[in-house]
């Protein structure tokens, strides 16, 4: 390593930005080809190369941070800012769907019967599975905090257990949502109710799956002794993301499931 008089991480050349960009191009053009010619070759190729890019890029980052010691205190600060800005952008992504929902529900058009829920739509009972889902996600917020305190206090066993519990709760939530989708009496094409409902809850579900994967990576890294009591930003970022997903659900529950019924 050449001598440097600062503590920043000067990154080396990496192929993953360009392979990621190529995957994005393959996925967008692949989507169009799928819609117009009913061929999934391009989109599958795009998805596969995106997965390969993500795996290898993040593997490299773990090597740089954990095994090469490039993530100094100052670099960690940059990672924190990055994660905060990313989550802020995600917040605005969801604000868009809430905007669409309130736009359609606060002044229902004559086409849907001038009422919300629209004529002929029978929404889900918010106090059955959705309320259970709320408690499941809130509980997972508690267990992820338990995991964080375990790591900070150096308690490996309880860190592993609480992290596993958090992941289990996340998967339970996904399973319950899958059941709700399967049993829902309306579909995404059932007027603006179905559209706003499935787009908002669907993107939330996708984010739960991403957050669960992030936490699973943290569990594997904890098993492999990657984290120290003072340096475990990968886990903290996953916990921040998990809390974000949790808060979005609270808004979905109170707005779409409860108020919207």
């Amino acid at each position: 390593m050449p001598t440097q008089t600062h503590t920043y991480h000067i990154v080396e050349q990496s192929p993953w930005p360009i392979t990621g960009a190529m995957s994005a191009l393959l996925m967008t053009s692949g989507l169009a080809v799928w819609f117009h010619y009913n061929s999934t070759t391009l989109i599958v190729t795009g998805l596969l190369s995106l997965l390969l890019t993500m795996y290898q890029w993040w593997r490299d980052i773990m090597r740089e941070g954990t095994f090469q010691g490039h993530h100094t205190l100052f670099v960690q600060k940059g990672l924190r800012y990055g994660m905060i800005l990313f989550i802020v952008s995600e917040v605005f992504f969801f604000i868009g769907f809430f905007w669409a929902f309130y736009h359609s529900s606060l002044s229902p058009t004559p086409e849907i019967g001038g009422q919300w829920p629209p004529t002929g739509v029978f929404p889900l009972d918010p106090f059955e599975v959705p309320l259970l889902n709320t408690t499941v996600l809130l509980a997972s917020g508690v267990t992820v905090t338990w995991a964080h305190h375990s790591i900070m206090e150096g308690k490996r066993k309880s860190a592993l257990f609480s992290l596993l519990l958090t992941i289990t709760l996340g998967l339970y939530f996904t399973a319950l949502q899958a059941m709700e989708y399967y049993e829902a009496p309306f579909t995404i094409s059932d007027n603006v109710y179905g559209t706003t409902f499935f787009v908002a809850t669907g993107f939330h579900g996708l984010h739960v799956i991403i957050g669960s994967s992030f936490l699973i990576v943290c569990l594997l890294r904890q098993i492999l002794h990657h984290f120290t009591m003072d340096h475990h930003f990968g886990f903290e970022a996953a916990a921040w993301y998990w809390h974000f997903v949790d808060v979005v659900w609270l808004f979905l529950f109170t707005s779409i499931y409860w108020w919207g019924t």
Partner: peptide, 20 residues
């Protein structure tokens, strides 16, 4: 790894992170 099995920075930090 201190008491409970998770190392401290002092035990595990490496490279520039450790030097800093």
């Amino acid at each position: 790894m201190s008491d409970g099995g998770i190392p401290s920075n002092k035990e595990q930090a490496t490279g520039l992170e450790r030097k800093v």
